[in-house]
Design a protein around this nucleic acid. Structure first.
Length: 957
RNA sequence: GCCGGUGUGGCGAAAUGGCAGACGCACAGGACUUAAAAUCCUGGGACCUUAAAAAGUCGUGUGGGUUCGAGUCCCACCACCGGCACCA
């Protein structure tokens, strides 16, 4: 690229101010109860210098958060600074508005790449991570963001993950109480049950409880009872061990959560994932499904993001219905005590149309009901279905497969005998793993019935009689739905559902149920570079393995030192290689799985509140202040009026949409657990959330190495500087939109900054500076050679100048409230285009303009603010804490205005009228217009519309 | 298939139901310069006329509607982007 003349010496200005901010800790945020240094500009602004005050004397908080990055070896890409610039602008704006702003940054630093590098080279992942963090820090600092670096967090720091492990112990030592619908300490479990006999009976399937109640343990040894008790309690924990089939990714050598599997492939790397039964730690997120769903209504997120979470949680209302198995009961194993198969359906109104039943191949009844003739076919099908990966299962979705078991069930509404099939389109993990098939009114059942020639019976009449009822799945009117005891005919779908469900409940054949797609969170990984579980495994006298939590006093539990980071040859996680670490002197063993990367990011926003606290994840006072429960003073107020509308939770959270059902769901879940247990004071962590849009390459395609269209932020910084980079990222278009990069556009905003520079400085001194720089490059002292423009004077501004300034104040202030950064910047361009023409540039106007510019282009604004300090004796505050200028509407009032005049809705003239004109005069003047007269000639005016001070429309005929 | 979003100049975009295209890019012409770069000034939706202009016609994905007036509100449709997808 041909290097053009530098618009202004950003290469000296930007490092200068970055170092100044660093040295003076300009952007340090103060917690309640923390002393504020004598000379800190925040203290000076709020008359708190040298004081130590509590929440009620601090200004109100504003917590503005970025999704912290994974510090990859590739460094920053242009997408990172997009969100970071937006939040930085708002953080600086809120500071100027008098808020106490919390704006932190940190590192989500556990993860696969550092571990894979370690496997290849033997370099400890911590070393790789540290190098990457150092690089990210340098890059982020070079953009001039106003982070409070004293609160920096790193998920791989033992001082940090001590608390990640601590929260895991809270999950481990809690259960979800079905009555209170909240996480409850596990110690209270037995108390809670014994206090409420009814509850106890609800848990009647549990051997421990029924055993206690019914005296079944009379012949048991105390050890046996203890084992049963332990197993019962373990089953209730929010963190529990499960043996179920899990998503195993052979390529990555680890299991994955459902959320990490997309189209049967790993989210990271796109490798195939298969189902494999393994012993794994799970977190009981499903217990919170209802609250995670309902509380979405209390937070200010985009519609689409809420929808994604709603879809993921996947609530559906319906009924469970029991179908009796037909035939000779004596042939069936004892396990089928009730001799019934339970199905879940959202359409109980179609029960009369159920012509067959389908079980998932893995359904536990399958071996017991299959007839001898069908045994081979069923076994073969089960093998076939189990051998399919998730990917194959979805890719082959087009063609339905299945086999008949030879068994029959009885439809409870009409006594019909219907065949029981197995097919892999029924999932074992959803509902009851069994369905009643209504082929007439369900697409999948319809396809299946067609393929296997099963009867299709209409029970719903479409609202439009012309619609084909076969495969009709919408609501309609029930038909052919008469049994000996109940009839649904002529009822609309909603009523039919209600009637049949009431009937089922009355007869004890079924009940209303709500099902969720959400599955429990698979929480263990076969990795080295993650948080070790604070769990040890023991054996009781009978040789049964059981787990126990480490005491909190032993946290953090550090991972062992390893020479080889690969899994063991027999497939155990890498931690199993550290025999000294795994095997404890008393014969117990450590858990060798580690936590997933999401663990650290589930709560990092809480650590920022009080990042150095060694006695708690965050102090109570800090938590209450920053999360908005304890409120401070209103900004710019001397009275003790409380900020009653303080926002609970993080005020604004900005990040990419890729975390919609991962980080954002997990973090909400953990937050609710901590809320239930009394450790945080809000039910939701992030009040307002905005997704920044994707930045595409110049060719309009997604940036990728293979396309060769990747823009490197470092190159842009060298060429145009950080301020221009920040400005361009915001000027491209609305924050939320996807938009293509255009380097020419960077030049545009760069030119604007150059114009601002020339608005302030004397051109002759700039030439002098440039000549001096050829002999002493990079000498920051040379900036002193730059003199203020002689047009800048300490004089009262003219009305026109004030108008120009206040139009800008108004627009920028309003646009920042709505995150319309692009139009705020254009307003400043309009101002500078105007001001550059002024022969006299009043210093008061320019100072106010710099306060507006500061959030966007902080380095340039600081440099010019400093230059202006020489113009008069007035001491000026530190720019980042200078009060935001107040918009005065009186200054925008015009004496004359231009009014469009339409004839029959078409613009015909624009007339100049006095601003205080009344409607009658306006109408008269509009009619008098020569151009308008031309269109009125020979016609009569039928109607006149006058919008006061806006426009006139003459209707003629 | 379902859900969400977006369609405006050559391009990024802007417009509480009231002058469509602010601001910027690219482009063209001019000033400055030996020349270039930088800077400054001017121009511009399309069409039709014209030496040039004025005047005129059309114009915000498509088709309808509401309204004195629609990019904006309503109905139907089309295209693109994102998410989910055998969830009973």
């Amino acid at each position: 690229m041909a290097s053009s003349r530098r618009q202004y010496p950003f290469h000296l200005i930007e490092p200068k101010w970055q170092q100044t901010w660093d040295k003076q800790q300009t952007f340090r945020a103060f917690n309640p109860g923390e002393p504020i240094p004598e000379n800190h500009p925040f203290g000076i602004r709020h008359n708190l210098a040298g004081k130590m005050v509590h929440a009620d004397s601090l200004p109100p908080k504003f917590y503005i958060l970025d999704m912290f990055p994974y510090p990859s070896g590739a460094g920053l890409h242009v997408g990172h600074p997009e969100g970071y610039t937006a939040t930085d602008i708002l953080a600086r704006y809120r500071r100027a508005r008098g808020f106490n702003v919390l704006h932190p940054m940190g590192w989500d630093a556990f993860g696969l790449p550092a571990e894979q590098y370690a496997i290849k080279t033997g370099q400890h992942p911590r070393k790789t991570t540290e190098a990457n963090v150092a690089n990210f820090t340098k890059q982020i600092k070079s953009l001039g963001f106003s982070y409070d670096w004293s609160r920096e967090v790193n998920t791989t720091d033992p001082k940090y993950f001590k608390w990640t492990q601590w929260i895991f112990l809270k999950l481990y030592n809690s259960y979800f109480d079905p009555e209170w619908k909240k996480a409850t300490p596990i110690d209270l479990l037995e108390d809670a049950l014994s206090e409420n006999p009814q509850r106890k009976s609800e848990w009647k399937n549990n051997a421990y409880l029924t055993g206690t109640r019914d005296g079944l343990f009379e012949n048991s040894t105390p050890e046996e009872r203890e084992q049963i008790r332990r197993e019962f309690i373990s089953k209730c924990r929010l963190a529990y061990v499960s043996e179920a089939p899990v998503n195993w990714c052979p390529e990555l050598g680890t299991v994955l959560a459902n959320e990490e599997v997309i189209d049967g492939k790993s989210e990271v790397g796109g490798f195939p994932v298969i189902r494999k039964p393994m012993r794994q730690w799970m977190l009981r997120i499903t217990a919170f499904a209802e609250r995670l769903l309902n509380d979405l209504d209390t937070i200010d997120w985009t519609q689409s993001l809420k929808e994604m979470q709603r879809n993921w949680i996947g609530r559906s209302e319906g009924a469970e219905v029991d179908f009796e198995i037909a035939g000779d009961r004596s042939t069936v194993a004892k396990i089928l005590v009730d001799w019934k198969i339970r199905v879940f359906t959202t359409r109980p109104d179609t029960l009369f149309g159920a012509t067959y039943m389908v079980l998932a191949p893995e359904h536990r009844f399958v071996p017991h009901i299959t007839t001898a003739e069908q045994k081979k076919a069923v076994e073969d099908y089960k093998t076939f279905a189990a051998g399919k990966s998730d990917l194959e299962r979805t890719e082959l979705a087009k063609e339905k497969t299945g086999v008949f078991t030879g068994a029959y069930a009885i439809n409870p509404v009409n006594g019909e005998k219907i065949p029981i099939w197995i097919a892999d389109y029924v999932l074992a993990s959803y509902g009851t793993g069994a369905i009643m098939a209504v082929p007439a009114h369900d697409t999948r059942d319809f396809e299946f019935a067609q393929k296997f020639n099963l009867p299709i019976l209409q029970v719903v009449q479409p609202t439009d009689p012309k619609t084909n009822w076969q495969g009709y799945t919408d609501d309609g009117i029930a038909v052919n739905s008469v049994g000996s005891e109940v009839s649904l005919n002529d009822l609309a779908t909603a009523e039919a559902k209600k009637k049949i469900t009431d009937w089922l409940e009355a007869k004890g054949l079924g009940k209303r149920t709500i099902n969720y797609k959400l599955r429990d969170w698979l929480f263990s990984r076969q990795r080295y570079w993650g948080e070790p579980f604070p769990i040890i495994w023991k054996k009781d006298a009978a040789g049964n393995l059981y787990h126990e939590a480490l005491p909190e006093s032993e946290l953090p539990l550090l991972p062992p030192k390893l020479d080889d980071y690969k899994p063991t040859p027999d497939g155990q996680p890498p931690l199993a290689r550290a025999k000294d670490w795994v095997n404890l002197p008393d014969g117990s063993m450590r858990e060798t799985n580690t936590m997933p990367q999401w663990a650290g990011s589930c709560w990092y926003y809480l650590r920022y509140l009080d990042a150095q606290n060694s006695g708690a994840f965050a102090g109570k006072e800090a938590e209450q202040y920053w999360m908005g429960v304890a409120s401070g003073l209103r900004p710019d107020s001397t009275k003790s009026a409380r900020n009653a509308d303080a926002i609970p939770g993080v005020d604004l959270y900005v990040g990419g949409t890729e975390h919609a059902v991962l980080h954002l769901l997990y973090a909400r879940f953990w937050h609710k657990v901590l809320f239930d247990l009394g450790y945080v004071s809000t039910p939701e962590p992030f009040f307002k959330l905005v997704n920044q849009g994707l930045i595409l390459g110049e060719d309009g395609q997604k940036m990728s190495k293979s396309r060769g269209n990747v823009v490197n932020p470092d190159d842009v910084l060298v060429e145009y500087g950080a301020d221009a980079f920040r400005l361009y990222e915001m000027f491209m278009g609305p924050l939320q939109d996807t938009k293509p990069w255009n380097t020419k556009g960077v030049e545009g905003v760069y030119r604007f900054l150059g114009r601002v520079w020339r608005l302030f400085v004397e051109e002759a001194s700039e030439t002098e500076f440039e000549q001096a720089e050829t002999t002493a490059p990079e000498n920051r002292e040379l900036l002193n050679l730059i003199k203020l423009n002689a047009a800048i004077k300490d004089v009262a501004p003219t009305p026109a100048q004030l108008k120009s300034l206040h139009a800008c104040i108004k627009k920028v202030s309003e646009d920042l409230e709505t995150l319309s950064f692009n139009t705020a910047i254009s307003a400043m361009m309009v101002f500078s285009n105007d001001a550059i023409k002024w022969d006299v540039r009043p210093v008061s106007v320019l100072r106010d303009f710099l306060i507006l510019l500061q959030p966007f282009a902080p380095h340039l604004a600081e440099e010019l603010w400093q230059k202006l300090s020489g113009i008069n004796a007035q001491p000026s505050p530190a720019l980042p804490y200078a009060p935001w200028p107040k918009f005065n509407p009186a200054l925008l009032v015009e004496t004359e205005m231009e009014i469009p005049v339409q004839v029959n809705g078409k613009l015909r003239d624009v007339i100049k009228v006095p601003a205080d004109i009344d409607n009658a005069a306006l109408e008269a003047q509009a009619k008098a217009s020569e151009k308008v007269q031309h269109f009125l000639a020979g016609k009569t005016i039928k109607k006149v519309i006058v919008v006061p001070k806006k426009m006139v429309n003459l209707i003629v005929g």
